[in-house]
Design a protein around this nucleic acid. Structure first.
Lengths: 363, 363
DNA sequence: CTGAAAGCGCTTACAG
DNA sequence: CTGAAAGCGCTTACAG
């Protein structure tokens, strides 16, 4: 068989019990799952006794417990946590709203949030805002309607007043990577300004004066802070910045490629580029690989295999997992009542030199 | 300030309303959120009328609707979907259980599942099994207890009989990347066998005979299938395989490094390596970069920047997003009642040549 | 067009 | 040690 022509679909061999999917779901619609009431009837005990056994509460004789356990097994009972949640008020779930689950920067962050949630017995509901403020709001409010206990949000928008009623109602909330807009909330950030400033100063220290900056859309806080770091480093060194050296916008490859190529051509081409995030860095690496004249590069965000490229890519690294862990821990501190007032936590960045940032100016 | 010494924590300026986090949550514990009953009382209407307005049902006069809307705004009411869910029987949420949220292979897969879920109005709850069958089971059953409508599972274990009561109760389920064990279930796979066979045949076509295989633990279906592809390609070419050419186990860098170094030394070193997955490939690339003698390499799974390494890394690519999309679509077909019987879908892989797989044998 | 009653499957508060 | 009643916040089924 040529497996490149398309999908191969073959029926599975029927299971002994031979139930079809459609039958299963039709049954589900009519609520065929056993409830505590069914278990109680079968075991010949009261509802509360079943509840005690299911929850491991004391005050049940060994014999009663055994009868209840047998009924549970026989019926295939599994407690309906949505009913439990309704009664208890806490859902033991938290929401995570980020830009894009597929972006490698968010993988370790999500995983770290998940681990902390797990340690607190909570499940993680997550979704991507796709950098769209409306979609962020829609997602956040859907999570609030599900009554998640808390939210970890990497905001896309810059106005979060829509969250005020939810905060008042007690939804714990921590913003990560970018601050909340127009509301007072807990926030965990990387030192975007200092990291970019140090990265650009590193290029200056290696003799560069014409340094380009390619970043994300200026309405994104991290992009604005990193640009500010760039400008500060340049000003500190007494280097006036020409408009054509900075380019901000969406980070899709076409736009970044065009921006890089423009900076690298013309009468006074840049001799070094500071890339504002991992998406930008990757595209700039591609552009530079096609050119003969060496151009120095420092990127914000580390990425896998950066050390194996020729030359290795010097980066300003932030610890995505630590961002997630810190945010999640603060969230559960809020829920414990330990955390009394919103704070802003800033995590340090780290310059990792690998070669590309230490290249001297080509002219 | 030296931002490398630690975190900087500063209090946010107090918001005008000045409520502290602890107060918010204390209030929440006592259930201060307005309910439909509160809205009904304030608007001077019955409960059902509020329900009609909230759900956009017909049969409410414009004037009544306006009064209800005003009460909703004034109280900051948001419908409690966990109560709704209890009554309706469907939670409009699906669960995704994968190995590790932080693994770049699963990012695009998760995002694809999320997009399909979103198109069907469902939220995504997800978690990492960490390749531990017990943790997989714990997570899956927790999701069932929350009464997710369906599950997309990348299994860690090879016995899923624990899911039988859930399947009978109507939980839609699709397994992805690896088949279900001991139960009859819908499954979406890549052509691991064919992809590995073709990749190894590619090395053979370039003159290699001593070819190593480094893969994941053999109990993992994909690892076993890829090994089978390797053996088949070798057998088809009439090349007997020496035991020391194959190494299966955990894919952490230390183990893979040792395995690669062993194959590359000794009396009859391999001249080419087939790497069983993206984690393995990355480590093998590092090992090869440290050596002078060129060794050919083909890896299973594509990865970012593979084309920019020297040489570019030839890979057998699978479409992770397509795996996720296909699985999620099948899941919703089950829920629609469209899909009647469990099937096995196999997606093709694609060989991408970039240089490392076309190197001739060094001897 | 509108609403009172019953019920989803649990837990809470209480009584025996 | 055990259980009947009330209630979590909605929707369903029905009556006016």
């Amino acid at each position: 068989m040529d497996n490149r022509t398309g999908h191969r679909i073959v029926p599975e061999t029927a299971a002994p019990r031979g139930d079809r999917l459609a039958e299963r779901h039709a049954a589900a619609r009519y609520g065929n799952r056993p409830t505590m009431k069914d278990v109680a009837a079968r075991a010949g005990v009261g509802l509360k006794t079943v509840s005690r056994v299911v929850n491991g509460e004391p005050g049940v004789t060994a014999d009663t417990e055994r009868r209840v356990q047998e009924a549970i097994e026989a019926l295939g009972f599994r407690r309906n946590d949505s009913a439990r949640v309704l009664r208890k008020g806490r859902t033991a779930s938290i929401g995570l709203v980020l830009e894009d689950l597929a972006d490698p920067f968010y993988g370790p962050l999500s995983r770290a949030v998940e681990e902390v949630a797990r340690a607190h017995g909570a499940l993680l509901i997550n979704g991507s805002s796709a950098e769209d403020p409306d979609r962020e709001q829609e997602l956040v409010l859907a999570l609030c309607a599900r009554r998640v206990d808390g939210l970890v949000v990497i905001p896309a928008g810059d106005d979060h007043r829509y969250l005020e009623p939810e905060l008042r109602a007690g939804v714990a909330t921590v913003f990560v990577d970018r601050p909340a807009g127009q509301i007072d909330a807990d926030v965990v950030l990387s030192d975007n300004f200092g990291g970019a400033r140090d990265g650009v100063a590193h290029l200056i220290a290696h003799g560069h004066r014409r340094i380009g900056f390619i970043g994300d859309m200026p309405r994104i806080h991290t992009a604005a802070e990193r640009l500010r770091g760039y400008r500060t480093a340049m000003a500190d060194a007494g280097i006036p910045v020409t408009d054509s050296w900075t380019s901000l916008g969406v980070t899709d490859p076409q736009r970044v490629r065009r921006a890089a190529e423009e900076m690298l051509s013309g009468a006074e081409p840049v001799t070094a580029i500071f890339a504002g995030n991992n998406r930008v860095t990757v595209t700039v690496v591609r552009v530079l690989a096609e050119r003969s004249r060496p151009v120095a590069l420092v990127g914000f965000d580390d990425f896998e295999l950066a050390d194996l490229l020729q030359p290795g890519v010097t980066v300003v690294a932030q610890d995505a997992a630590q961002l997630g862990r810190t945010a999640a821990e603060r969230l559960f501190s809020q829920l414990d009542g330990t955390l009394l007032t919103p704070e802003r936590t800033e995590l340090p960045t780290r310059l990792i030199t690998r070669g590309s940032g230490e290249l001297p100016p080509a002219d």
